[in-house]
Design a protein around this nucleic acid. Sequence first.
DNA 1: TTTCATTGTGTATGATTTACACAATAGTAT
DNA 2: ATACTATTGTGTAAATCATACACAATGAAA
Lengths: 244, 244
Amino acid sequence: MTGFKSQDEFYEAGDRVYLPHLSVDCVIFGFHENSLKVLLLKWKNGPWCLPGGFIKHKESLDQSANRTLKERTGLTEIFLKQFHAFGEPDRENGKRAKGSWIGKRFITVGYYALVEYSKVFPEPDLLSSECKWFDVNAVPDLIYDHNQIMNKALETLRLSLNDHPVGYNLLPEKFTMPQLQKLYETILGETLDRRNFQKQMIALDVLIRLNERKTGGAHKAPYLYRFDKRKYDKAMKQGLRLSF
Amino acid sequence: MTGFKSQDEFYEAGDRVYLPHLSVDCVIFGFHENSLKVLLLKWKNGPWCLPGGFIKHKESLDQSANRTLKERTGLTEIFLKQFHAFGEPDRENGKRAKGSWIGKRFITVGYYALVEYSKVFPEPDLLSSECKWFDVNAVPDLIYDHNQIMNKALETLRLSLNDHPVGYNLLPEKFTMPQLQKLYETILGETLDRRNFQKQMIALDVLIRLNERKTGGAHKAPYLYRFDKRKYDKAMKQGLRLSF
DNA sequence: TTTCATTGTGTATGATTTACACAATAGTAT
DNA sequence: ATACTATTGTGTAAATCATACACAATGAAA
């Protein structure tokens, strides 16, 4: 909602800047304390919703989604992927502001993002009072069809796990094997064998084990790893194939 | 373009019926004479393009795509799947009709369909003079970004082959194992081992071998098969897993 | 110093995938 | 009629991959 000073101004004049009937919504995933999180916004005096935005007249869908993401998280150059367009005519039942351009029917294009939790500083937008992380298993009732959109994003993420080693996008630079495994287990919603998991990850040949261990935990200190960017990019181009 | 009597009327008054800035485009795949085909339209005095349509004010995206498909092929209840939305601001460079609603920028939602070639009777629309099948390997230069849209559809189809036994949608009711294999080979763009292919297909347990053979070929007559709808549907629900 | 939860590591078994060859047959050519 | 040719139908062995599983080492906390 760049360029608007107030909510009223946005309601009245948004259609000079944005295409009518079209929006993007972002399902922003992060990983923290062994659980998968999603970033949500709370409307002023209203329900929670996915962070979204509109499409400027000379802007691509991807640019619009990136802009939304930057405004909510401060992040640029992050993993962002379109996954589905939602266009039921009644998807926004109960919409207010009937008269305004924004009260009209909207088709929304869903994107999901994978971000490093610790690098995000959630920022509400003009219309919202709060912006914060929720555990994906404890998402409240969202506005319109936003629960459905979120679930579809999660499903897409699950299905694409085997082609995209998501650790690279969701974990901090240095991480442990148990952390990486928890990430997979959280996304898949099932537990995995520790030894077999490690074997497969090592076999991908995109990880470097550092000569450091993560201390501070109450037990045996695990090794730290990082991704080998060169090998990672090469593997991505060829298309990975995992089997969980 | 239901309801319009002429091209002029459609150009002038389309925006009373359709949402602005939004369209759907359909990549309709068929299989004939051992090659994968795609159905294209030719604009009057213009280039070839994908069959597309617009979204009525109270219509969902899926309904709009289904309507387009029905109008071009006569078919209903066919396999139709949304795969991507295309929204570059310059994707329609060189567009005519600048003044009209239709001359404005459009975001298009891509669908691909799998249809039985022999059941289709291609019908041009108001704006086009021809509607016919092209081999996917011999598609002409299409308007705007339609080549890109088609390629993305093909890529999506390839990636989803292992979850959707496409034979059911693309082949006639009775077909031979070599036909089914050719279909897979054509979509994947690689050859497969004959015995291993058959083994996997049989193992899916969705095929019934008939006590008939296909005669007329110059060589040994192959058995005919058909899908066992019950088992097929059941297998679909559980999610297939092939490995080509 | 003991305890406890967690980490690091290898092998054997079963399942899956791949590679591969020869006899039967339906038309075609002679 | 006969031989020819391209294509079909079929099974097994080897290699690869996925799975199941246990014990010693360690770091912090008690």
